[in-house]
Amino acid sequence: MRVGVKLVLVAAVVVAAGVMIGFYVSNLTTLAGSPAYSLPVQNVNGHPVVNLEIQTVAAVGPQLSRNPDWVSYLVRNTSGQWKRETVWSLPANATVHVTIYNFDGASGLRNPFLARPQGMAGNRIMVDGKPTDAVDPNEASHTFAVPALGIILAIPGVADDAKDQCGYAPCPMSNAHRTIKFTFHTTTPGHFRWQCFVPCAAGWIDGFGGPMQTIGYMDGFLNVKA
């Protein structure tokens, strides 16, 4: 084979590899391995309002993932089904009412600072119907945080001795759970990462691997659109 042909082949392979790496990185950072779910928007007195219902489960189960034992967030869609979709589209300048049903047990916060709810309306959350300014760091199970919007809140866990604990998700409301409610407001359009700050990936070194490092389980994006 002539040297020129060899050079062209090598250049073609290098370019192809570069393009594939580019696609991979782009896919990883923007799309997020999880389909975007557009939350239905209600119009209340001319103001967009969104109700976001999510649940946190200790084991996502074989129906929703090839990794049934992974911890995960799920979102309830308009037909009432729980889906493992963590990229959510929201309108800008909207009021977002969030309800989190947590079916997982407590594992504690590494940094108690995260126990103070911040960034939502009134810097306060409702835990099982009671207004709460701080969650006991040792009772926290997960967090829901959108660092770029300043939103941080700890989610208290189900007691270790609670009856009817959920096995695999999706978990019915008859299982033991905690209910957390809060409201926040979106402002300008943007692409905001959200995540859990508790290293909750059981079975991985220090709880950091698997679902903590894979989009679609314990983290995702808020795509705020104009």
Binding site: G108, N111, P112, A134, D136, P137, A202, D206
Partner: peptide, 28 residues
Amino acid sequence: IKPFMDKPEADGGAPFGHTYLPAPERRA
């Protein structure tokens, strides 16, 4: 959250020295 932060480390509170080390039971 100050009451939680002021707890002695032995009682499950956060250590408050120069170096912040998580309690071993919180590492996973």
